[in-house]
Computed example of a mutant assay.
Amino acid sequence: MRIAVAYDCLFPFTTGGGERQYRQFAESMAAAGHEVDYLTTRQWEGDAPSAPFTVVAITPALSLYDDAGVRRPAVAAQFAAALGTYLARHRRSYDAVLVSALPVLNVFATRAALAGTRVVQVFDYLEVWPREQWIAYSGRAVGLVAWALQRGAVALTPTATCHSELSARRLRAEGLRRPPLVSPGLISGRDRVDVVPEAATPPYLVYVGRHIQDKRVDTLPAALAWARRELPGLRAVILGEGPERAAVEAAVEAAGVADAVDLPGFVSEEALRDAIGGAAVLVNPSRREGYGLVVVEAAAFGTPVVLADDPGNASVELVTEDVNGFVAPSTDPAELGAAILRAVRGGPALRARTRAWYDDALVSRSIERTAATILAHIQDAVDSQRQR
């Protein structure tokens, strides 16, 4: 088959979970013997990068996020328009397309471009937001429009894939007509590393990610201060950057832990691995996660996690209490701090259980299994179309 995978970013030129996911989908499909085009924005100089699939830049470089870390609606529309134009020009070139439904304008563009064709269309939903979340993210006027567009896109989706039960429930609530394909997981064997049986001394917690409001990074210093009342040597390494960086620095000062917190910003891949592997616990207080790849990346080293429970946080589905980490009821300093203490005190035994969870997940929750499941659906649908 000839298949197009469409997403506006490409790993490693941008390095989020979605970028890794769609690249590995494309690689898995190509490895299965199919001809795969990856439709994206230009993020490189010169010729298209070498890959097991064909990289097709359908737009020039785009600035996807504003200074507050919010996706720019105009840029989302620009990519969707380019995607629709490209697919309309090549409407009989593909047997199937796998398109990211983030942003949802991609769904409208694809459906319009391929109307009247037999091209199998699968839309992958990294996240699905209720109305209130759209309003909180984009403001009332823009948020209501975005939510209405999401409902329209869901209604137009012939086949939806998602990667958490949270997203599956929300798709059904937003009007999806057919049951979604819920993936077994997005864990890659490429993430496999040597387990680190003991955390570094003195112990430290690590945070990895952007500093934006939804990640609630500024709640970490107070939780650290609470935990240090019982473990005075506990430190924190807060990696990443973002528009909330100043708020994080202010929270560090307010909590009185400036001498116990490192804020190195973004670091090299090697330094990142060292930071995660040596940490006693990885803490992610985010209120919003569509999957939670950082849970998996930490578990590869044997590093347990602490998450904060929230209705929009699908990553809690990946945590088995006292096996690979803990879920705090909230970001209240006492509740988050207590969960951090439990993880640190779990020591080598908890790290061994965390790595065992990861080894099992490599088999039962792999991204390769997910890609194979999607590919099998596409193959069945294409075969059905050809028989008509």
Rank of each mutant, 00 (worst) to 15 (best):
F301G: 00
E321D: 15
P12F: 02
V182K: 01
S28V: 02
A155Q: 02
R111Y: 12
R388Y: 08
R111W: 13
A30T: 02
A298M: 10
A260T: 11
V193E: 09
A361D: 09
V99P: 00
V75P: 14
I367N: 03
V295R: 04
R178L: 10
G84P: 07
P103D: 06
A31E: 05
S188W: 06
F266H: 13
A338C: 07
A112V: 14
G325N: 09
N284L: 15
V323G: 04
A6L: 01
W129D: 14
V382T: 08
A26N: 04
R273D: 14
R131T: 08
V122E: 01
G278I: 05
A246V: 11
V257N: 02
P130Y: 03
V306C: 08
E253C: 06
V208R: 03
A80L: 09
A255Y: 09
A279W: 10
G256N: 04
Q387H: 13
H34S: 02
A115K: 02
A109D: 07
W357G: 00
A328M: 12
T41I: 09
Q21F: 14
A136G: 11
L263P: 12
T201C: 09
A254S: 14
V344W: 07
G240A: 10
A227R: 15
I187P: 05
P103Y: 03
V120M: 05
A300Y: 01
H163S: 12
Q379I: 05
D360Y: 10
L156H: 05
T110H: 01
T59M: 06
S364F: 10
E321T: 15
A81T: 07
R71T: 12
S183Q: 06
A112E: 15
I187S: 01
R169P: 13
S164P: 02
E35W: 01
L105Q: 15
V294C: 15
S93Y: 08
R388T: 13
R351Q: 06
G139V: 11
A223F: 09
I367R: 06
N106H: 03
P329K: 15
R20V: 09
R353A: 11
W134V: 01
T303W: 02
Y125A: 11
A352D: 11
L362P: 02
E249W: 01
H90G: 09
L362W: 04
P184I: 02
L263K: 07
T303E: 05
L231K: 13
A299H: 04
G240W: 00
G265T: 05
G242Q: 06
E269C: 10
P158H: 08
S364C: 12
T110G: 04
L64T: 05
D322H: 07
L362F: 03
S28A: 15
H211V: 04
Q43G: 13
V363T: 14
R2P: 00
